[in-house]
Design a protein around this nucleic acid. Structure first.
Length: 615
RNA sequence: GGGGGCGUGGCGAAGUUGGUUUAUCGCGCCGGCCUGUCAAGCCGGAGGUCGCGGGUUCAAUCCCCGUCGCUCCCGCCA
């Protein structure tokens, strides 16, 4: 049997199983009698002759009911509505030359119907199934099965399948084993909140859904499996975004006896393979490398958009003698002043500049200063009167041209960089500097291992606690944690963080020191990660890994800006699945079995949903 | 937790700086006509208390407040 088939409520299929798909018939099949199964994409009734655009996942084929067809067939045809699921038996015939449709693969032929059987009828649709649905997301998610029928969604789901398939093929070729890890695990909260699953057999105890298979993949290395991968589902109970869902999929990879560069080589090969096989695109490898510090200083982001340059400049050396108190006081308090040259934007209005300022403000900048470079090579407008004396020097240092707009932010280093980086991204989009057909990858390396949490007055792991400090810092870890660089790396592409990884700590003593710096006692470490620490006492190999985000990868390949577009059944930004309406309340009986009691918050009282809707 | 945007027949949009009248357009839907379309065409028709609640006003779809939903962003997080 060449194709899978099913049974409709309305007609038996035994005699009308498809012998061809709606995407494969061409003039070479002229004269053949075929059976097609599919959905009515469009119906055009000309009174005499009638046309049905019959669609399946492979394409659309035109079915014709001729003027002289028998009455029963014509009656069936006239009853067809959009999205009826039907079977058609008919004869392939080439079209007269003037009726060939060059835009369709099957446009040279049509199928003259001998028999049409309705397998399933269809209610009037909530939205049209077009190449790309125009309905708003809310509706598309509610009727996801209809949205998924569109060719644009089918292409994206196929792309995702191809990426998964070629990932498995490539990693298999490179000696990796696919090993599954549990989805009900011990709660070991790191950065994000865990999803908890109550245990019926052990009342009062909980499993957690994994935020990632991190601990298990390290234990797999201890187990001697050398090279592991998994298309792993990961769950984090945090607010969603366009590029973030409560649940997402990682291409989780871990390797023993490797250095950072070995990991890079595997992932570069993987990306090259995926782009070539799934997209037919060539990407340049190896990827460029940028330190975290350079990425922040030059592009104002740890996931920089590198399809255009427009670098940030250090403006601090140009401040002295200006008499501009704002900049001088920021510098005096240890901050920094960064500048950006917006090429050809000297004609920007105050409104346009204040829109840019809003971008800077979202990241905490208190203002966005500006000056325009005049045709004569001077500075005008904004804060230019403070810098008139050094105008030529400023223009030369920043590499600005007449007609450019200079934008300046003064603040603490990280705020100044990220705020001006946001302005840079906005300008890049606004000025159309991002070629949608380009993929600009880079490794971001040399991340700090620890970050100071000012609120809680303590050090915390910037990535996670199992990442190896770079060797040159090993002796003096505790002296200045903020200065310690980790053997940590991110892969970025077109302004998205695509992957994150590290070389891990495999020495229990070093692990203990790192726990010490982030304030985790031996006892707490034993309680939370005891099984891992114990495993490390039995000959743990040096190891490291990485985890590219599958959803984001496919999103970028598909040219989309939301991962919802490449997930078959996504949740919305509030974490609600609009199709099945989860999360939902559960029966009191289920709660009783688990020993759980719901404590309503006062703010929940004007309850939107009944607390006992039982769904 | 915070900020911005949106909500008008089944879908997508327009609209009213508050007012004469039936709230407009395209798609879809229903009925009719039509031998060649492929976004078919032509004629006719049904369908909306302008998200919900309150306020201001002689008068609110429009202004104000609240609320719900969706979305983008900051925080958080990958």
């Amino acid at each position: 049997m060449p194709y899978p088939c099913g049974h409709g409520r309305f007609g038996r299929m035994e005699q009308l199983k498809r012998t061809a798909t709606c995407g494969e018939l061409t003039a070479a099949r002229d004269g053949e009698t075929v059976v097609l199964n599919g959905w009515v994409h469009r119906f055009r009734d000309h009174g005499g002759v009638k046309f049905v655009g019959l669609r399946d996942r492979y394409g659309i084929t035109q079915v014709v009911v001729d003027e002289d067809a028998d009455e029963a067939l014509k009656a069936t045809a006239e009853g067809l509505k959009n999205e009826f699921c039907i079977a058609v038996r008919g004869t392939v015939r080439t079209r007269p030359p003037e009726m060939i449709n060059p835009d369709m693969v099957t446009g040279a032929i049509e199928v003259a119907a001998l028999e049409i059987r309705v397998l399933s009828t269809c209610e009037p649709l909530p939205f049209m199934i077009d190449e790309r649905s125009e309905a708003r997301d809310e509706l598309r998610l509610k009727y996801r099965y209809l949205d998924l029928r569109s060719f644009s969604m089918q292409r994206k789901i196929k792309l995702r399948h191809d990426v998964c398939y070629h990932t498995r093929e490539y990693l298999h070729e490179r000696g990796f084993y696919e090993i599954e890890t549990p989805t009900l695990i011990k709660s070991t909260p790191e950065g994000a909140r865990d999803f908890l699953v109550p245990s019926r057999l052990h009342r009062g105890r909980f499993y957690a859904l994994p935020q990632s298979p991190q601990l298990f993949k390290q234990i797999i290395m201890v187990s001697g499996f050398d090279r592991y991968f998994q298309l792993a589902h990961c769950y984090r109970d945090e607010d969603a975004r366009g590029d973030r869902q409560l649940e997402h999929t990682q291409i989780d990879i871990e390797m023993s006896f490797v250095s950072r560069d070995d990991v890079f080589e595997v992932v570069e090969g993987l990306m090259a393979r995926l782009f070539e096989r799934a997209l037919g695109a060539t990407i340049e490898i190896p990827f460029r490398r940028l330190s975290y510090e350079d990425a922040m200083n030059r592009y104002g982001s740890d996931k920089p958009e590198l399809r255009f340059e427009m670098p940030l400049h250090d403006f601090a050396p140009l401040v002295s003698g200006s008499g501009f108190a704002v900049f001088e006081s920021v510098l005096a308090s240890g901050g920094t002043v960064k500048a950006l040259v917006a090429g050809g934007c000297a004609d920007y209005s105050r409104k346009q500049i204040s829109e840019l300022e809003e971008s800077a403000a979202t990241y905490g900048a208190r203002g966005l200063a500006w000056m325009k470079v005049t045709a004569a090579g001077g500075l005008e407008g904004g804060i230019s009167k403070f810098f008139a004396a050094r105008a030529a020097e400023i223009i030369a240092t920043l590499g600005a041209q007449p007609g450019d707009l200079l934008l300046v932010v003064a603040d603490q280093w990280k705020t100044a960089c990220t705020a001006l980086g946001a302005v840079r991204s906005r300008l890049g989009r606004q000025l159309g500097l991002c070629d949608p057909a380009r993929f600009s990858f880079a490794w971001i390396v040399d991340f700090p291992l620890f970050e100071w949490n000012a609120e809680e007055q303590r050090w915390e792991a910037a990535h996670h606690m199992f990442s190896m400090p770079q060797e040159r810092f090993l002796e003096h870890l505790e002296d200045d944690p903020g200065a310690v660089k980790g053997n940590l790396y991110d892969l970025v592409c077109n302004g998205f963080e695509l992957a994150s990884g590290s070389i891990r700590i495999h020495d229990p003593e070093l692990q203990r020191r790192v726990f010490g710096i982030v304030g985790i006692s031996d006892e707490e470490a034993r309680r939370r990660f005891g099984f891992l620490l114990e495993a490390f006492q039995y000959g743990a190999p040096p190891h490291g890994g990485i985890a590219p985000g599958l959803d984001r990868l496919v999103m970028i390949m598909a040219g989309e800006s939301s991962i919802r577009e490449v997930i078959a059944f996504p949740k919305n930004t509030a974490g609600v699945s609009l199709m099945d309406d989860s999360p939902s309340h559960v029966d009191q009986k289920q709660l009783d079995e688990l020993g759980l009691q719901i404590v309503e918050r006062e703010s929940d009282y004007p309850a939107v949903r009944s607390p006992v809707d039982g769904s």
